[in-house]
Write a protein that binds this DNA or RNA. Structure first.
Length: 884
RNA sequence: GGGAUCAUAGCUCAGCUGGGAUGAGCGUCUGCUUGACGUGCAGAAGGUCACAGGUUCGAACCCUGUUGGUCCCACCA
């Protein structure tokens, strides 16, 4: 038999085992109609990314499910890949170019894309190798990239198809503009942030019908005074008596000397401020709507970099905030500034770069959402797609029910280029999968492709089927689609989950997956988000290096309910590392005692302790499997942890030691060894999805013939392996041992001091239990000798006594017994029992309880009443004895 | 403004959809070189399950309200 090191050292072992799994192709799945598929598509990490705790959690959960299902016999495919992450990557590359002193314009589109692909080649694999460190059993042979040829084909196919159906259109609408990234972004990418700002109260002069100033003013407040350059009206509520008479009149827009009308619109809230709103249709989504209703002109005052453009006249060229200052100052000089108030308001920022976004009107491509969203909503409503935890349904519906059209065009170069072509001569637009050679309208041969690219999420939305080969009807697509579970953070439910769902229904006519398993955020020990700016991020790779991937994985999935955020503690990782070491040593112990492989014993040769642990393991298998099927990953592994540490190590191994250390009964020793080994193996299997490395290393060392735990079969509950009688018997012994240890500690008796133990019970079956298990009872109860008898004969009055149900245990400890102390201990026990009896009696004497509670419950309480009454009698008797 | 979620041992959290809180890890205290493990073993202390009502024979769990925290959405200029 092999020998193991004294402590488990994951370094070295992990890489070796991962390489072995790769070499043996265990992660690879092929279409096989004889097996049921189980598929997970990875949320593709950005190629710019570095593995962070969020990835670690997300991928650990997926790996657990995949390994679990693979062992259950499913044809498990974990489809991996990475995301081109258009903005994130483009920004990174621009930064790098900047260091070299060049801009992307210097390079030109083609040159820039060359650099981008080179960058991807160099860094895109980094995150993948980090995922491997974690133990992820992805099918790397099938690795995909959201911008590879196949995905591009899928994107073009969808774009053209949806355009034909009228779901994709180009339109001039108000969109969110990031002046730093120089692109439009979708609503989902805008993050609102509370900022301290001001309310500038401003007044515009009212004009007479002959355009002379009337001397009257309309006063209103604004948080963005610079937008006044683009004002094309002022609005009041139609029913507002204060201003009714002014509707239809004109105002003079100061600084610009433009005549603008007073319009009436229900959008205005009479209660808010002065009940007057300036209308800037070019730079505010609400004003844009008002403008449409009143046919107001749209004046765009901003350049793409958020400086004022020619429409801002003399402010042209100024930055938006400079212009703000200048305008306020000038208004003040003109006497048009009424007052300034401090005001905290929500400012929209770009989630990638934090820049304040500017709403402005531009021609962009959109996806029309109202029809597309219907099946996606319905699927969750009718349970076709299950969200775990269920509470996220509300969030989901909140989005589907308030959905707005999705702005999908981006003014970026890195991404899928929009397959739209414009005739250079007549302006005709052609949307097609391949570039047309001439204009279908005028025959002109110069067709220019739209310079814009698509939102990254447009290609991610197709991920569950594009990775399986769509639009080709591949065998993989037929076999693995729909996939099974999607695991992701609740923070991208809008970006990604919803979009995959409606895309799945639209393109495939079928849901992309039946379950979405959400997890929360991994926070730091203080509960703060891990972020670069705070510098509180913990690098999973460092944790792996220090404690091992298994410890990290276990830390991430325990003590946490689905969808909830969790805090990361080093202490927790350490505790889990210790657990790995514990199993390691338990295995080491077994191996040390195993000269040769034990053979399967007959049930008749098993001792009660063996049957007890087998029975326990059997129900563990049932529970853990059930929990895992319900995605209660943390609960499941907690049970395995408790079983291994408490039941198996602290009890069973200790129970079995006397049998291992004797050489007279080889058959019995074999039975013990076999039980040790087989129960351990079952437990290892249950643990393997969570801690793949230690379990594999032990599994292979424990039995030379088995090649890998990861392709072994998942244990199955077996009625024939359930032994309730032995379970009860051993629990009785455990109770007795705990009582004895407790009493001894109370007396300060050192473990080295053995004592006689006399077990007294008038019930034959109880006596039998002790007689049958005397071998280990003796050692665990620190007994010099054990007597099991029917009555108290020969027991000294001053012996320490332990009372359990129907059994009295006496230890004549002689001079060590402090009568006063012992009496105190017994009194305490008496008090405890009194409490118990009071509770049970209270229930049973309650007529309503007896008449309404279920029968089983009543019987249970009656049994307790009997048990406690009996114990009480015994305790009282002992107190009397000692008080004599 | 709308919604979600949390409040349980000193700390961080579980608690299987109503039946004694023998809860877990960490921390604290007391013993222990017991031939796998001190990354260990055996014990102990520590909780009126945020507060107030209600439903029920019975509530940490269900309902209502209150307080405090976190988050999401919307956004009134």
């Amino acid at each position: 038999m092999k020998e193991l090191a004294k402590t488990y050292d994951p370094s070295g072992i992990e890489d070796r085992l991962y390489q072995k799994w790769l070499d043996k192709k265990y992660f690879h799945a092929e279409v096989d109609e004889s097996k049921k598929p189980f598929t997970i598509v990875i949320p593709p990490p950005n190629i710019t990314g570095q593995l962070h705790m969020g990835h670690a959690l997300d991928n650990t959960m997926q790996d657990i499910l995949i390994r679990f299902k693979r062992m259950q016999g499913y044809n498990a495919l974990w489809q991996p890949g990475t995301d081109h992450a258009s903005i994130a990557t483009e920004v990174k590359i621009i930064e790098k170019l900047k260091e070299e002193g060049i801009s992307k314009e210097d390079l030109g589109r083609e040159g820039f894309l060359e650099r981008a692909w080179a960058w991807r080649k160099e860094y895109g694999g980094r995150i993948v190798s980090q995922l491997k460190k974690l133990g992820s059993s992805c099918d790397w042979d099938r690795e995909r990239f959201t911008m590879d040829e196949g995905c591009n084909k899928a994107v073009n196919e969808v774009f053209v198809k949806m355009h034909e159906k009228g779901y994709i259109y180009k339109g001039s609408r108000i969109i969110n503009w990031c002046p730093v990234c120089n692109t439009s972004i979708s609503d989902a990418e805008v993050e609102y942030e509370e900022q301290a700002g001001h309310f500038w109260h401003i007044k515009y002069p009212i004009l007479n019908d002959d355009d002379t100033e009337s001397g009257e003013y309309l006063i209103f407040a604004t948080t963005r005074p610079e937008t006044m350059l683009g004002d094309t009206a002022v609005a009041v509520h139609p029913e507002d008596d204060r201003y009714k008479h002014l509707i239809g009149k004109n105002l003079m827009l100061p600084l610009m000397n433009r005549k603008i009308p007073v319009v009436a619109d229900e959008y205005v809230d009479r209660e808010f401020g002065t009940g007057v709103v300036k209308i800037t249709p070019g730079h505010d989504p609400n004003d844009f709507e008002v403008g449409k209703r009143h046919d107001l002109p749209i004046v765009n005052i901003l350049n793409d970099d958020a400086t004022i453009n020619a429409n801002g006249c003399k402010y042209e060229g100024m930055d938006r905030y400079e212009a703000r200052k200048a305008i306020v100052k000038e208004l003040e000089e003109m006497g048009l500034l009424v007052k300034i108030e401090d005001h905290v308001h929500n400012v929209g920022t770009h989630d990638r770069c934090g820049t304040t976004v500017e709403p402005l009107v531009k021609a962009q491509w959109f996806v029309k959402m109202d029809e597309l969203i219907k099946p996606a909503r319905e699927a969750v409503k009718n349970g076709d797609i299950r969200l775990v935890p269920e509470s996220l349904q509300k969030t989901y519906f909140n989005w589907t029910d308030n959905i707005r059209d999705w702005c999908i065009s981006r003014q970026l170069w890195w991404g899928h280029r929009i397959p739209a072509y414009y005739c250079a001569k007549c302006g005709e637009t052609v949307v097609a999968k391949t570039a047309p050679d001439k204009c279908p309208k005028c025959g002109c041969e110069k067709m220019d492709q739209d310079p814009d690219t698509l939102d990254t999420w447009f290609s991610s939305a197709l991920w569950p089927f594009s990775t399986l080969g769509w639009p080709e009807q591949t065998p993989e697509l037929k076999y693995f689609y729909p996939t099974d579970v999607l695991v992701t953070g609740y923070d991208i439910i809008f970006f990604w989950v919803i979009r995959m769902i409606f895309s799945g229904y639209e393109q495939m006519g079928e849901k992309p997956f039946h379950t979405v398993l959400f997890h929360g955020l991994v926070r730091d020990a203080q509960g703060r988000k891990m972020s670069k700016s705070l510098g509180n991020g913990i690098d999973p790779l460092e944790i792996i290096a220090q404690y091992g991937a298994d410890a990290l994985r276990l830390t991430l999935v325990t003590g946490n309910a689905p969808g909830n955020d969790m805090r990361f503690y080093y202490e927790k990782v350490e505790a889990n590392r210790n657990f790995a070491n514990k199993i390691w040593n338990a295995s080491r112990f077994i191996m040390m005692n195993m000269e040769k492989a034990p053979v399967k014993p007959d049930d008749a040769d098993l001792k009660p302790a063996d049957k007890w642990i087998i029975s326990k393991a059997n129900s563990l298998i049932k529970d853990v499997t059930e929990n895992m099927e319900k995605y209660e990953l943390g609960v499941a592994v907690q049970k395995v942890y408790d079983f291994i540490w408490d039941e198996f190590c602290d009890w069973y191994i200790e129970m079995v030691k006397p049998r291992l250390y004797q050489k007279d009964d080889e058959k019995d020793r074999n039975a013990a060894l076999y039980t040790l080994k087989s129960v351990l193996i079952d437990a290892l299997k249950l643990l393997h999805p969570y801690m793949p490395f230690v379990t594999e290393e032990i599994f292979c060392n424990l039995q030379d013939e088995e090649e890998s735990i990861m392709i072994s079969s998942w244990p199955v509950y077996d009625e024939a392996r359930s032994f309730p009688a032995e379970e009860n018997a051993i629990e009785t012994i455990k109770e007795a041992i705990r009582g004895i240890r407790n009493a001894r500690t109370g007396m300060n008796v050192p473990p080295s001091r053995k004592a006689q133990v006399i077990v007294v019970s008038d019930m034959a079956e109880k006596r039998e239990i002790f007689n049958n298990n005397i071998d280990f009872f003796k050692s665990l109860a620190y007994a010099s000798e054990v007597h099991v008898q029917e009555d108290k004969s020969g027991v000294a009055d001053d012996a320490v006594s332990v009372v359990i149900a129907h059994v009295n245990i006496y230890m004549p400890l002689g001079e060590l017994v402090d009568i006063a102390k012992e009496l105190e201990r017994l009194k305490k026990e008496e008090e405890r029992l009194e409490g118990e009896l009071k509770r049970v009696n209270g229930m049973l004497s309650n007529e309503k309880f007896v008449s309404k509670a279920p029968e089983a419950k009543i019987a249970e309480e009656k049994a307790k009443l009997e048990k406690y009454s009996r114990m009480m009698e015994q305790v009282k008797e002992q107190i009397q004895n000692l008080s004599k």
